[in-house]
Nucleic acid binder design. Structure first.
Lengths: 253, 253
DNA sequence: CGAGAGGTTGAGGATCCTCAACAGCCGTGG
DNA sequence: CCACGGCTGTTGAGGATCCTCAACCTCTCG
């Protein structure tokens, strides 16, 4: 199994989604020791020895923009830890509609909610690097390292909280409020990764945003325009600049 | 602390929400041994000895219809295992709107997603009995019993799956599809608890259903009427009867 | 019998979707 | 070098769905 398990179906831009790079077991302590996102990842639960063992399971992969990490319905062979880039998770409906569940940023774990098959698809929004683990081996590791399991459970808890926030957004907020909440939440997450508190890069397309917010692309476009007209946002190449954070927060509240 | 921690704020029908009954540690093995919902609960992960220790932490509580189990914003002192009745979990918005996250049935665990404060409220829809645990003690138990932690993590995973299903429903389905999915999913969950595959008791009000499905009470009422007119459902006292399961499933797909 | 709660039905309106045209950007290729 | 097509995003007009407001019905309970 060289990576074909998680490869494409919806996307055929490249012949091989996962470009293998130097695996983590390259050195004694493991590449995890020098991982940029370790402190914000589930891996932070582990001590030196434990991390070495985790490293031996990790495989550093690269997925080009639009490449697939997992496909809904496939056997769930891997779990991932995102180390760079943005990933979208989503489900495709029979009528062609799409619902995005979220955007994974560096440090986020992919594979928290899973049966034996993937219940959603995950694709790279831009160029992505990630740590890939064999799910069975990773699961065995959880038996040995309860602290890792606890950390993972924490992550699942926090994702459940995010999911609940999103249910509120989808069920009870209008387009303007949805967009405000989206921009602010993305800003906050990027801020924790060292991003700017005013300029929010939007790696994802309007269609992605629409499918995340339960709107159409036209409504997203119109709402952004309207927020720009009221000097709440400023549209800049590749993202938006927050001009009136207070107003945005009032909308999102 | 005798139960006031989790008591009411939104609801003041009774002076004491939690009517203490015989605690589980009444006998040697613990009342958990004879628990009706043990096989479908997280508790099933435990062996005899372990269960005895769990029993010693459990407190059997009763919450009358409309009573509160937890209030959003309160310190998260307890977690629960529902043993009878139906519980609604929800968040209240500043503008008075409400979004329900789900209905907990016997065997369901309350407290999977949590920080140090409750991020949502939980109220009894009808008369509810539950096992209440001190969160700190329960958390310590998790350190001793990794199998319980695993089971809990499984439960969190599966709740995350449900949350994703619900995001699809809220973001991408019309009123008819939402109602169909709701009735079917409730039927399936009740079936696993020994319920009928055709008659679905609806303990919750139309308002609850509306707030769960992201609709208004009027739209729910109209949609039920319309599904009854097309002989897909039959409205019976306290619930509905599924007349055309195939049609309902086609709508929910 | 009256009051209140929960639910249904109707009319009108707001929001968002659908369909369509168009603008900007970028890489390709003559 | 510029023309062209494709892709992404914006804007507009009209329509569908769902919400709002209001009346009314049914059932229960005092």
């Amino acid at each position: 199994m060289t990576g074909s398990a998680t490869t494409m179906r919806t996307d055929t831009l490249t012949s091989e989604t996962t470009l293998e790079r130097e695996p983590c077991q390259a050195d004694a302590t493991g590449a995890c020791a020098i991982c940029r996102v370790r402190s914000v990842s589930v891996c932070s639960a582990l001590s030196g020895d434990e991390m070495a063992r985790l490293s031996s399971l990790a495989e550093d992969i690269h997925v080009p923009a639009r490449g697939a990490l997992v496909n809904e319905g496939d056997p769930a062979r891997n779990v991932f830890n995102i180390t760079a880039g943005v990933v979208r998770t989503f489900r495709l409906l029979p009528d062609g509609k799409r619902q995005l569940f979220g955007f994974l940023l560096p440090g986020d774990f992919l594979g928290l909610s899973m049966s034996d098959k993937y219940r959603f698809s995950a694709e790279a929004v831009d160029d992505v690097t990630a740590c890939r683990f064999d799910r069975t081996k990773f699961s065995r590791l959880l038996d040995s390292y309860p602290s890792l399991l606890r950390r993972l459970h924490q992550a699942a808890s926090s994702e459940l909280n995010l999911a609940q926030d999103h249910m509120v957004l989808l069920g009870r907020r209008n387009a303007e409020q949805r967009l405000a909440a989206f921009v602010l939440s993305l800003r906050d997450r990027l801020k924790r990764l060292g991003g700017s508190p005013v300029t929010v890069p939007l790696a994802m397309s309007r269609q992605d945003i629409a499918d995340y917010l339960g709107l159409t692309i036209e409504t997203v476009s119109r709402t952004v325009t309207s927020l720009a007209a009221s000097r709440t946002l400023l549209v800049v190449p590749g993202g938006v600049r927050i001009m009136d954070a207070a107003k945005l927060e009032a909308l999102a509240a």
